[in-house]
Amino acid sequence: MLELHGVSKRFGETLAVDKVSFTCQRGELVGIIGRSGAGKSTLLRMINRLTDPTDGRITWDGQDVGHLKGRPLRQWRRRCAMIFQQFNLCPRLDVITNVLVGVVAERPLASSLVKFFPAADRARAILELDALDMAHAALQRAGTLSGGQQQRVAIARAMLQEPDLVLADEPVASLDPVNADVVMDALQKICRERNVPVIVNLHSLEIARRYCTRIVAMSKGAIVFDGPPVALTQAVLDRVYAGRTTPDNATTFSIVEAA
């Protein structure tokens, strides 16, 4: 179980995340919504510890993960897999190597430096790819795939990490609607079958309503709503998007953010 207690992040003057507290159980698919700049990415990055929180406590099953360093930190990152809007694969490496990057944190340095992976790892990588219908492209270069395919490869990499928790930062923002559904279906399946919590930043309300078991809305760094999708009323949305139900600048900003 993931627990956040009064977690804050300050970048100089801006308070990106403001005393956020929430818990997340196994099997939950939590969608985080909010305007661009509301602090959604920063929140996820703090959970994975790509960004250090300024204040507050982050725990997993009661153990503090907010102050880890060195090897324990890397192990925590391995356990909480992250998926990005721009997929962030290495385009020049083939698909299977991209997936196998998910295990380099666990394997001896020397062998992974010469790109040697045990047959068992390769087999698992192929099965993860197959589960997402991508095994046929295993030897293709990642850069030659379409966006939806690349995101599925990124999910396969995340799965190879055998994560306890999956974080996805706008995973479908750069995809067309069909591919967006494919990717969201995959995340939902992971959440149900492997019984891990999945936290997804979304800018599409419609997708959030359709897939999430719970929705958290953020505004100016703070949580302004936390509950089931049905409870998300127009009044709440007005507060979140400040009068606009469709955050028109979300898409244009998201590319800059991901960089």
Binding site: R74, R78, F84, N88, L89, A105, A154
Partner: peptide
């Protein structure tokens, strides 16, 4: 790409 690798727990050398 580096960030994605860092997020999956890879060390500096990897």
């Amino acid at each position: 790409q580096l960030e994605a690798m860092r997020a999956s727990g890879a060390g500096y050398a990897a």
